[in-house]
Computed example of a mutant assay.
Amino acid sequence: MAESTRVWFSGALETVAIWWRLERKDGVTLGFTSHDRDLTFEGLVHRTAPGMVPSAIRRTADFEADSAEVAGALSHDSIREEDLAAGRFDGGSIAMGLVDWETFERVTLYAGTIGSVGHEGAGFSAELRSSKDGLARQIVPRTAPTCRAEFCGEGCTLSAAAYSHLAQLAEISSDGGAVRVSGGPASAMLAYGTLRWLDGAEAGLVRRIEAIDSTWLMLDRTTANTIPLGTSVELREGCDHTLETCAQRFGNAINFQGEPFLPGNDLLTRYPAAQQ
């Protein structure tokens, strides 16, 4: 059914509920509604979640980003504290709107992505970023001595598959902030790369490798030290975004997205030197 063009809340009594749809980056899609029973439409069951409340949704006719926020209790099986802490909802897409629970006429009031997610006590709150946030990006990129392109992403042109490797978990540090793996490339090649869990409780989660300490991979987020050894992971090599690495290691200097030889701002503050 196409979205309704009706005028909502035009009568004294309306059979209207709020709906939310969350799509995580790992592909899991969740639907919720403020109604007192589950509602199914567009092939998705929207579970009743009366504890979830949207703040005022502000929509503008100009290019200014729309604003909204959603809050609720950590009482629904689909939204668990450990999933929030693991970042499963970070960067996912969200849509919310109104639905008539009798006719299933509906309208989308807000669509965007999930920004920062926090939890306090038995509740959580999520900052929402509207689709118009993309209009705020800089049209002309700022100059920088390092490459602006994401490794194996747009502008880099290198194949992600060529620099991805399968390995197995060999050890986890006591604080969960570092892991060792068996298989894959040398540890030094993984600095600034990523590790994606393929099995276990954290399957689908991607962690950035912030640094290398001997054979330990230092991750950007802690992981549960109860993950069984031998769990499969996918490793993506990393790049420090310098021209030297791009040219010598990857042979990709022609696609380098930076200006390594452009004089910096300090050129204007230098004192002239007398000729000898």
Rank of each mutant, 00 (worst) to 15 (best):
L229E: 09
V117K: 01
G258C: 06
T157H: 12
S130P: 08
R47T: 08
V179A: 05
G27L: 06
T33L: 00
A56G: 09
A162Q: 14
T226S: 15
C147E: 10
L158D: 04
A247H: 08
D77A: 13
A162L: 14
A201M: 09
T15Q: 15
G134M: 10
R6P: 02
L229M: 12
A167V: 07
Y192A: 13
E120W: 03
L166R: 12
R148K: 12
S214C: 03
H165E: 04
I79H: 01
Y163V: 11
A162M: 11
R207P: 02
G155L: 06
A224H: 06
L217P: 00
D62E: 13
A85T: 14
R137Y: 05
S173V: 04
L98T: 03
R148S: 15
F32I: 12
R6D: 08
F89R: 00
T242K: 04
E14L: 06
G91S: 10
A136K: 12
H165A: 04
N255A: 14
R24T: 13
N225Q: 11
E210W: 02
E154I: 15
P141C: 03
Q257E: 15
N255I: 01
G264A: 11
S10D: 15
N255Q: 12
R129A: 13
K25G: 09
V181A: 10
G176C: 10
A136M: 10
I114Q: 00
E3S: 13
G51C: 09
L98A: 03
L219P: 01
A162Y: 07
G118K: 11
P272R: 10
Q138D: 12
T60L: 14
V70M: 14
P260S: 08
